[in-house]
Amino acid sequence: MTLKKWRSYSGPYLMVFPCVVFLLLFAIYPMGWAFKYMFYDYDGFSDAQFIGLDNFVRLFTRDPQFWHSVWNTGVFTFGKLIVTLPLALLIAFILNQKIFARNTVRAVIFMPTILSAAVISLVFYLMFNSYNGIINNVLISLGMIEAPIEWLGIKYSMLTAILVAIWGALGNYMVLFLAGLQGIPNDLYEAASIDGANKTQQFFKITIPMLGPVMQMIIMLAIVNTLKSYESIMVLTAGGPAGKTEVMYLYLYKLFFPVSEGEAVVQQYGYGAAVGFVSALIVGAITGLYLYLSRKSSTL
């Protein structure tokens, strides 16, 4: 093979090669490592001891904390998405119209998406502080409450975590909906206007049906991302108080990186690998169920 032909054939492979290397190092190898050690008792220091399915027996019979975190994940996911997705769609629809300063408003709403989740959560942690946080101070000064509310306490901690998640994710889904809206031909709206349809009728009769495939993808991405998210909750409450906000992947994180002796004395890599495998199955099952139901409903 001549040098010219080698360059023409090798170019695409050389461009893909770094991606393949990173995929092997940071995706395939960790998956293989986890698959191996979920059958072992391993803390990262002592020799790994093969224990067969004992980690799974412990998970399904002796670990109610994990299943409580699964329930919390469901509550967190439902509470976040039931508000974020409709609100993002409504805002995208409004900002897709010819209104004053719409690009500036788009940028402001999208801005939280580019910020660090840890930084955002730390700011909200200070804002929702029970005794010197700005939220309680404003509510007291307006006469809406008489005593500080424990926003990060047992009663309101999950609600606070959901509100922070909505604020952080709204701009991302707004942009995705905007992309879908801009793919809808304007001729449809012009024809509907000529026929006497108002904006509300256009929204439900044209926008929603035409957004079907795009909306299916956005909802799927939102479900997967929310089921796996834990960073903001880790900064806000660390899963507390009393496990009230401990979601599935935060529980998994604590098995590999114990945050305090009260949560876990040592790393539990073997058991954590088993928990991670079951968590991935749960996320995959929920996503698959959604895709099946959405495709079935679209064919009716």
Results as ranks from 00 to 15, higher is better:
M1A: 06
L3Y: 00
L3S: 00
K4I: 03
K5P: 01
S8W: 00
S10G: 10
S10D: 02
G11E: 02
Y13A: 15
M15D: 06
F17V: 03
V20A: 10
L23N: 04
L23V: 08
L25W: 01
F26L: 10
Y29S: 12
G32K: 02
A34D: 06
D41C: 01
D47E: 14
G52I: 11
L53N: 05
L53C: 03
R62F: 03
T73S: 15
G74N: 12
F76T: 07
G79W: 09
G79M: 08
V83T: 04
V83H: 06
T84M: 08
L85I: 14
L90W: 01
F93S: 15
N103P: 08
T104S: 14
V105I: 15
V108L: 15
V108W: 14
M111L: 15
P112D: 07
A118I: 15
V119A: 15
V123N: 06
S130I: 04
S130L: 03
G133R: 02
N137S: 13
I140P: 01
M144V: 05
Y156T: 12
Y156W: 12
S157T: 03
I162E: 09
G171H: 14
G171S: 14
P185V: 07
E190T: 00
A192S: 04
S193K: 14
S193A: 14
D195Y: 05
D195F: 11
Q201I: 02
F203P: 05
K205C: 08
K205G: 06
T207F: 12
P209L: 13
M217Q: 08
L221D: 02
L221M: 11
V224I: 15
N225I: 07
M234W: 13
A238D: 11
G239H: 08
G240T: 11
A242W: 03
Y249K: 03
Y251W: 12
L252M: 11
V259Q: 05
S260C: 03
S260N: 10
G262R: 08
V266D: 00
A280W: 05
A280R: 00
V283C: 04
A285N: 09
I286H: 15
L289V: 08
L293S: 02
S294F: 02
S298Y: 05
L300V: 07
L300D: 00
